[in-house]
Design a protein around this nucleic acid. Sequence first.
DNA 1: TTAACATATGAACATATGCTCACACGTAAA
DNA 2: TTTACGTGTGAGCATATGTTCATATGTTAA
Lengths: 129, 129
Amino acid sequence: MLTRKEKEVMDITGKDKICDNLCSLTEKVESVREKMVSSEKLLELSELFKVLGDHTRIRILYALFQSELCVCDLSEILGMTQSAISHQLRVLRSAKVVKYRREGKKVYYNLDDAHIFSLLDIGMIHVNE
Amino acid sequence: MLTRKEKEVMDITGKDKICDNLCSLTEKVESVREKMVSSEKLLELSELFKVLGDHTRIRILYALFQSELCVCDLSEILGMTQSAISHQLRVLRSAKVVKYRREGKKVYYNLDDAHIFSLLDIGMIHVNE
DNA sequence: TTAACATATGAACATATGCTCACACGTAAA
DNA sequence: TTTACGTGTGAGCATATGTTCATATGTTAA
């Protein structure tokens, strides 16, 4: 895409391309464009990673990786207020990253499925290199 | 962790715990706390996911999944300015998610390693359910 | 060297995000 | 029903983030 200034320059010079390789390699660019997953799907994917991309939420998930826990436990383990934890659990719930069950006054949380485990594992491997 | 108000209440009432289960299940909480990965490692992990957690960057990565591309190609494929793409590529470079090579005036980008492919794959599976 | 091209980057701006505070909601025991 | 407990949530604030604009840097050809 062109900036406003670039467009003005192109209007003046009469050029119709951004950079030289677009002439010879339009096929390559077109090929990639065709094989691109829909922007909506990629938006969903980025939303998933965005949910995982927070220190507090990752710590919550790693704690839940060890054991089912209630909000109060998580508050104690992470050393954060119940409110802060609860707000983040809401984000994790909305993204279907955790599931929960009520037992009396308490609400116990778990990781939602095996994919979450895999993502955490592979991510950790990458980080540890 | 306790809010300021909760602490005041506890000072007045003489309580020393947040919620009842902390008495009987301190072992559980302690066990999870011990097995928690270091907060620094989890911070690194969250930084990685944060980098993946943006629509523009995910689209860049999916384009690079198809083929090695220069900044100009990416600009054309995503329909965004060269500047915006370049700024995001810097983020991806810093996080070691992409690598690059210069060829004349152009700089070609690639995904850094197989882990990135795996993360994108598994994430996509989760999203598609 | 000069000109043109491809890319990188700093500043500024608007928007998004995470935590705190205060309080509402839901449950169970008195 | 009233009370206490555990959890959920809206508003407000400070900080973080993504894009644009203008310009700098690096490379090649004339």
